[in-house]
């Protein structure tokens, strides 16, 4: 048997497209959608895959990253899936891509207006760890009652002197909805604010879609006396020398020697290619 272009049937794509348009119209709000069972496991990017399948056309150039890298196994597998069911061109170059599906990172290279970033989201509800009941969190969003989150962050400060959230750091979108940026390191949060590119988020298992439109106010929660800060390293990338990128720490021998390298493999590779040229 043969599958439809991009695997999903047209009814499903229309349902996804209607939901995505509402998501864009209500920035940061989680739209419930009829998530389908995909041929990849829940928790492995089924939300992002469904969003990508609803967007994808024959003219697109798709890039898929996981942890910032194109060659991690799950990124390879998702890219392979779309090459197989849609026959689209794929790339590892951020600048060449029209669509980028990502897990846990936003590329270091600035995105453009003609690009769309699709995030894989495990838990779309930023309040879930504080309030497990969906009926309750939905009410809190309806009332824009985010006291729970402020109390949590404040308690962090009281106990540790710092906000003890280093990834999936909650944001307020367009001054209204408290939103999960997905488990990106807070290092990437500033890239959400006034982004030229549209950002779409898909949570397949939890059956929610949401969006951050381009040029939208995205504020990482903070307090006046504890402003939002991103991670910093005392190191530079040992491969390309970058001092501005997010670094992975790699243990290189059994004495525990560390090496720091860019998590964004395309960014790092391009810098090294330029240095050699």
């Amino acid at each position: 048997m043969t599958y439809n272009f991009a695997f999903l049937d047209e009814d499903t794509k229309r349902m996804l497209r209607r939901s995505l348009l509402k998501a864009v119209a209500i920035p940061g709000y989680q739209v419930p959608f009829g998530s389908r069972e995909m041929p990849l496991p829940y928790g492995w990017g089924t939300g992002g895959i469904q969003v990508t399948a609803a967007l994808l056309g024959p003219d697109d150039v798709l890039k898929v990253i996981d942890q910032g890298a194109d060659d991690t196994t799950n990124a390879v597998n998702i890219r392979r899936f779309f090459a197989r069911v849609a026959g689209v061109a794929t790339t590892e170059r951020t600048v060449d891509a029209t669509l980028i599906q990502t897990r846990h990172r936003i590329p270091e290279t600035s995105l453009r207006e003609d690009q769309i970033l699709v995030f894989q989201v495990p838990e779309p509800e930023p309040l879930r760890t504080l309030e497990p009941r969906e009926a309750e969190t939905r009410t809190l969003h309806a009332l824009a009652d985010y006291g729970l989150m402020h109390v949590k962050l404040y308690e962090d400060i009281a106990q540790y002197g710092h906000i003890a959230t280093s990834y999936d750091y909650p944001v307020r979108v367009d001054g209204r909805f408290l939103t999960s940026p997905s488990p990106i390191p807070k290092f990437d949060n500033p890239k959400l604010h006034q982004s030229p590119a549209l950002m779409l988020f898909g949570a397949g298992r939890e059956k929610r879609l949401y969006a951050i439109p381009p040029y939208t106010e995205v504020e990482s929660l903070a307090f006046d006396d504890h402003p939002f800060e991103i991670q910093q390293w005392e190191h530079q990338c040992e491969l390309c020398g970058s001092g501005e990128s997010y670094l992975d720490e790699v243990i290189v021998d059994d004495r525990g020697t560390r090496m720091f390298v860019c998590s964004d493999t395309d960014f790092c590779g391009q810098r090294r290619a330029e240095a050699q040229a």
């Binding site: 497209r17 609803a54 967007l55």
Partner: peptide
């Protein structure tokens, strides 16, 4: 071409709503 015409139209609608 229902599959591809809908897809191309949707992408414009998405950008129209986003911008």
């Amino acid at each position: 071409h229902p599959v591809f015409d809908s897809q191309r139209s949707f992408r414009e609608l998405l950008q129209a709503m986003a911008r």
